[in-house]
């Protein structure tokens, strides 16, 4: 009796991953590799930021935040683009893998965009003299944050996971399509309401060579960090699904036969 159950469980389990341990182990190896690589690069990146990159002549040391802030912000944008694409593919194919990707990417994206806002605020204080200004990119970023927090809320508040996946996919698509419109409307709005605070940034003048190189390295580092986080989050969701699969197989067995 117990044996038959066990084979059934193995079956329920293996539906997620064809050879029960193979892909799981492989993806774990991949994640270990990513985190090691990411860690090493992050240390290198930090040392570049502090010792290699020249101090900005005007802004001083605070300008070094820039090497964190910009890659983080760009990664969050990338994350939401991934959500957009994965949501469309999910709605068309209904393959749970795409939903996992969308969910993981949205969550990591919200973490990144939160950090982009926080680092932005910390940067704004010494440079502009205020914590916050309704500057177009800041405002757009804030709206972005609101949209994707709503995305996560829809998923959490849905009646069941299938519904959550569909609803959040819809929000992921509508929200992303909206972003360019938000961006332009805020820019135009800003351009007719000059604020007393200093406008955007002083360094529109081309970046110095070393600065650009460090920034590029920072980008790659954060890209790896992003991929790692998404992979980690997807692995969690896969475990969740596998646990759910086992539980549901057990429930089927527990139904006494009529």
């Amino acid at each position: 009796m117990a044996e038959t159950r066990q084979t059934e469980l193995a079956h329920a389990d293996s539906r997620e991953s064809v050879t029960p341990l193979g892909p799981v182990r492989r993806s774990r190896d991949l994640r270990v590799y990513l985190v090691v690589l990411g860690g090493v690069m992050m240390l290198a990146d930090l040392s570049f930021i502090f010792w290699v990159a020249p101090t900005d002549s005007i802004l001083g040391d605070i300008q070094r935040v820039f090497y964190f802030h910009v890659p983080i912000a760009v990664m969050s944008f990338l994350a939401f683009f991934v959500v957009f694409v994965a949501s469309i593919v999910y709605l068309v194919t209904r393959s749970p893998a795409w939903d996992r990707l969308a969910q993981a990417s949205a969550e990591v994206g919200v973490v990144f965009v939160t950090l982009a806002l926080i680092t932005g605020v910390i940067w704004a204080r010494p440079i502009w003299g205020v914590w916050w200004t309704w500057e177009p990119r800041l405002t757009t970023t804030l709206i972005l944050w609101l949209i994707y927090v709503a995305y996560l809320m829809v998923r959490a508040y849905a009646a069941n996971p299938n519904q959550g996946a569909r609803y959040s996919a819809v929000v992921g698509i509508v929200g992303f399509v909206d972003v360019p419109i938000v961006y332009y409307s805020v820019i135009w709005w800003r351009s007719i309401h000059p604020s007393p605070v200093v406008g955007p940034l002083a360094q529109a003048n081309a970046l110095e060579g070393t600065m650009a190189a460090v920034l590029l390295f920072s980008f790659i580092t954060f890209l790896i960090l992003f991929v790692f986080l998404v992979a980690q989050r997807m692995a969690l969701r896969e475990t969740e699904d596998r646990l759910g699969g086992i539980k549901s197989a057990m429930r089927r067995r527990a139904e006494s036969v009529f």
């Binding site: 927090v149 709503a150 849905a158 419109i181 938000v182 332009y184």
Partner: peptide
């Protein structure tokens, strides 16, 4: 209408997107 706490969900979804 289909989610829990539906009174709050509509504005939360609606306002950021409708901002432009």
């Amino acid at each position: 209408a289909q989610t829990r706490s539906r009174e709050i969900m509509l504005p939360v979804l609606f306002f950021p997107v409708i901002l432009p």
